[in-house]
Design a protein around this nucleic acid. Structure first.
Lengths: 249, 249
DNA sequence: CGACGTGTTGATTCCTGTCAATACTCGTGG
DNA sequence: CCACGAGTATTGACAGGAATCAACACGTCG
């Protein structure tokens, strides 16, 4: 695990051709606003496993995830860790008006982030409602997700937790690669330990419950990470969720 | 528990003399903006125990809590319930751009809310950065609180959960009635069951752990609700929090 | 090959949930 | 005035689910 320095890249691409252009914090910006964002942006890339920033560290940028997956987590003094957010492409990191990181941010996969220097970004959003409105919308979505996760952490059994996580990943996968139908297949982006940190479990319990879901035919496994969901409704049922596939927008 | 209709009140007071004027969503508004808010506002009051709105119901207003305490909670089909937010005076309820309630909202104490008709409010925030900026700030605070709660729900023991809740209530109490020093004294605004719903526990476990904290001298009790915290640092230690009273702003 | 990271499985412990009995407080009504 | 019931809270006995401790399997990389 050679902890190389993160790579800082100059202008990789212009905003117009950016893959997250229509979903990120800049989604509503017009070309003039984009031009101003271009002036304060730079790219950083991290390898899987690298720490982007530690909780409490000075943080003089905010950023969007361009590609890859990162996690937000909190750690108690004795080492207990709880993941409090999963950052997917287009998700936003950092808080305007705050100078230090509130959470540990870790690259789970190789990660590319589009960073904005904080000071100019803060000034820009004061004069650019398109950005603050989009940021508000994204923050409200995150708050909803956090609250749904609170229900999972506080009230669901280990089996339900695992099923819920698989359902969330499966859903995201379907929305990215619209499926012709048939079983949903994907690779788990998280290790058993990361799943445990996310779900408020131990890695042993995660492993056991994944095996149990496989044994019960809810999922199939090839290798440790490649998952096939044969019956999505069955999975939702096991997750304890409303089975009416609909979820709030 | 006579479930009377909530009382809808005409203009109770003008914004200028409102007790939450400087902390609520309207905190940054100038007199012109306040005047526009006045036109779309009305007050509603609820008795302790009343439901403000059920998850899924149509919700054609957003609101600020003026006085009293309300809770946000989610319920699974089999009845398991998790509280996902506590609404104190100046806190905001509802989401611009969403037509139905995402959570059950319940008045824990007698409650007074300052409601804004949603449609005009949505239009107003598009043209009033002062409001959307303040709303963003408040939403980010809520997100931080939700994430702190995720750590509690996922990783803390029952004893730590109780101590954490008491610490939060004690802190709020101190900030409202700055203490001359000496022990912190307050009344619990929640029943044991509500505490359990908040903490992801059963009411029996809550009762047992409260008794244990009392037995161990961390707190004293008079009656069921009146709590004395003799040593706040000790309480924080039991809560598993950093003992350096500082918490992020 | 051997070390290391990752994952699985088993044995056991123990914390919390579940079920149940009992107090206490507060209205209501005979 | 007291009986009664409802709501709230405490406590005990017991069961069960997840954590803990431990051994082992698998794949990769030097």
């Amino acid at each position: 695990m050679g902890l190389r320095e993160p790579v800082i890249l100059p202008h990789l691409q212009d905003c117009g051709s950016c893959t997250i252009r229509h979903r990120a914090v800049c989604a509503r910006c017009d070309s003039d606003e984009l031009a101003r964002l271009e002036q304060m942006k730079y790219y950083r890339s991290f390898e899987a496993g690298q720490t982007v920033i530690w909780s409490g560290d000075r943080m003089d940028f905010v950023a969007s995830v361009v590609s890859g997956i990162a996690t937000l987590s909190q750690t108690m003094e004795d080492g207990r860790r709880q993941m409090v957010g999963l950052l997917l492409p287009s998700d936003f990191v950092g808080r305007p008006g705050r100078s230090t990181a509130a959470y540990d941010v870790t690259a789970t996969t190789d990660l590319l982030m589009c960073c904005f220097r904080k000071k100019p970004f803060e000034e820009l959003i004061l004069s650019t409602p398109h950005i603050s409105q989009r940021l508000l919308e994204m923050t409200l979505d995150e708050l909803d997700a956090a609250r749904e996760w609170m229900l999972l952490l506080g009230r669901k059994t280990a089996r339900e937790k695992i099923a819920s996580l698989l359902a969330i990943i499966a859903r995201r996968d379907v929305s990215l690669n619209p499926r012709k139908s048939g079983p949903i297949v994907f690779d788990l982006p998280l290790t058993r330990e990361e799943m445990a940190d996310y779900l408020g479990l131990t890695l042993e319990t995660v492993s056991r419950q994944v095996s149990a879901l496989k044994r019960d035919g809810v999922i199939s496994l090839e290798g440790k990470r490649h998952v096939t969901v044969n019956d999505f409704d069955r999975l939702l049922e096991v997750a304890g969720d409303d089975s009416d596939g609909g979820y709030p927008v």
